[in-house]
Amino acid sequence: MVFSLIRLGYLEDERFQKAIGWIYAFQRTDDGVDKPPEGEVYMRYESCWGRHSCHMGVAQALKAVAAIPEEKRNGKIDEKIAELAEYFLKHRFYMKSHDPEKVAKPGWLRLGFPLMYQTDVLELLEIFAELRIKDPKLQDAIEIVSLKRNKEGLWKMQNSLNDGMLVPIEENGKPSKWLTLKALKILKFYAEL
């Protein structure tokens, strides 16, 4: 919601600033190393605020604060972006940080559009590219996206939410214009990494 409202021009709204403040104050990236934080906010949803930071929560928080135009960011937002980005670099987006050979989020390897509350390696790479973050730890995700290109040079829709939408956007299992456009832009940006 924060991402969408920023894109719709509500960044300066006083009520909306509270949502950004919430992300800064409460979004965890501790990765279960230390004792989880305590307090009412963290006790409400064990699955999101339990022993380990929620991958999806971190992804959506990064997507939201990355949407803030660079000239409108302050030091706090820049710090939060760096913290959230580092979390994903440590996980190579979809791996477990404590066991880097195990996949934590297998669904993130299936590309889709639109993703709504979900994400995948392509969307995360897009966010990192928009933030102009280049790091050797991204190579694995870049390779995953690159290898999904078919013989015609297109990317197939692998994860569709069309069942829950009024108007379907492309077709699962078929080449996707949206995914192809995103993948080509990202691969071009990271070509020299």
Results as ranks from 00 to 15, higher is better:
Lys76Pro: 14
Lys76Ile: 15
Ile77Cys: 00
Ile77Tyr: 03
Asp78Phe: 11
Ile81Cys: 05
Ile81Gly: 04
Ala82Asp: 15
Ala82Pro: 12
Glu83Met: 14
Glu83Pro: 13
Leu84Ala: 00
Ala85Thr: 15
Ala85Val: 15
Glu86Asp: 15
Tyr87Leu: 04
Tyr87Arg: 02
Tyr87Thr: 00
Phe88Glu: 07
Leu89Val: 11
His91Ser: 12
Arg92Gln: 14
Phe93Met: 13
Phe93Asp: 05
Phe93Gly: 02
Tyr94Thr: 03
Ser97Thr: 13
His98Gln: 14
His98Ile: 13
His98Ala: 13
Asp99Gly: 08
Pro100Val: 08
Pro100Glu: 06
Pro100His: 05
Ala104Tyr: 12
Lys105Arg: 15
Pro106Gln: 01
Pro106Lys: 01
Pro106Trp: 01
Pro106Val: 02
Pro106Met: 03
Gly107Ser: 14
Gly107Asn: 13
Trp108Leu: 02
Trp108Glu: 01
Leu109Ile: 08
Phe113Glu: 09
Phe113Ala: 12
Pro114Asp: 08
Gln118Trp: 14
Gln118Ser: 12
Gln118Tyr: 13
Gln118Leu: 11
Thr119Pro: 11
Asp120Tyr: 02
Val121Leu: 09
Val121Cys: 13
Leu122Cys: 07
Glu123Ala: 11
Leu124His: 02
Leu124Phe: 08
Leu125Gln: 01
Ile127Pro: 05
Ile127Arg: 04
Phe128Arg: 02
Ala129His: 09
Leu131Met: 06
Leu131Asp: 02
Ile133Asp: 03
Lys134Tyr: 09
Lys134Arg: 15
Asp135Gly: 04
Asp135Met: 13
Lys137Val: 06
Lys137Pro: 06
Gln139Ala: 14
Gln139Met: 11
Asp140Tyr: 13
Asp140Asn: 10
Ala141His: 05
Ala141Asn: 01
Ala141Cys: 06
Ile142Leu: 10
Ile142Asn: 01
Ile142Trp: 04
Ile142His: 05
Ile144Cys: 08
Ile144Asn: 08
Ile144Leu: 09
Val145Glu: 02
Val145Thr: 00
Leu147Ala: 08
Leu147Trp: 11
Lys148His: 06
Lys148Trp: 06
Arg149Gly: 05
Asn150Met: 00
Asn150Gly: 04
Asn150Leu: 04
Lys151Thr: 09
Glu152Met: 12
Glu152Pro: 05
Glu152Cys: 09
Glu152Ala: 15
Leu154Trp: 09
Lys156Tyr: 07
Met157Val: 03
Met157Asp: 06
Met157Gly: 06
Met157Ala: 07
Asn159Ile: 07
Asn159Met: 10
Asn159Arg: 14
Ser160Thr: 12
Ser160Trp: 06
Ser160Ile: 07
Leu161Asn: 11
Asn162His: 00
Asn162Cys: 03
Leu166Trp: 10
Pro168Trp: 03
Pro168Gly: 00
Ile169Leu: 11
Ile169Trp: 09
Glu171Asn: 01
Gly173Glu: 01
Pro175Ala: 03
Pro175Leu: 04
Pro175Gly: 07
Pro175Tyr: 00
Ser176Ala: 08
Ser176His: 06
Ser176Ile: 05
Lys177Tyr: 10
Trp178Ile: 08
Trp178Gln: 13
Trp178Asn: 15
Leu179Trp: 00
Thr180Val: 01
Thr180Arg: 01
Leu181Cys: 09
Leu181Gly: 10
Leu181Pro: 00
Lys182Ile: 10
Ala183Ser: 06
Leu184Gln: 14
Leu184His: 11
Leu184Asp: 14
Leu187Met: 07
Leu187Asp: 01
Leu187Ser: 04
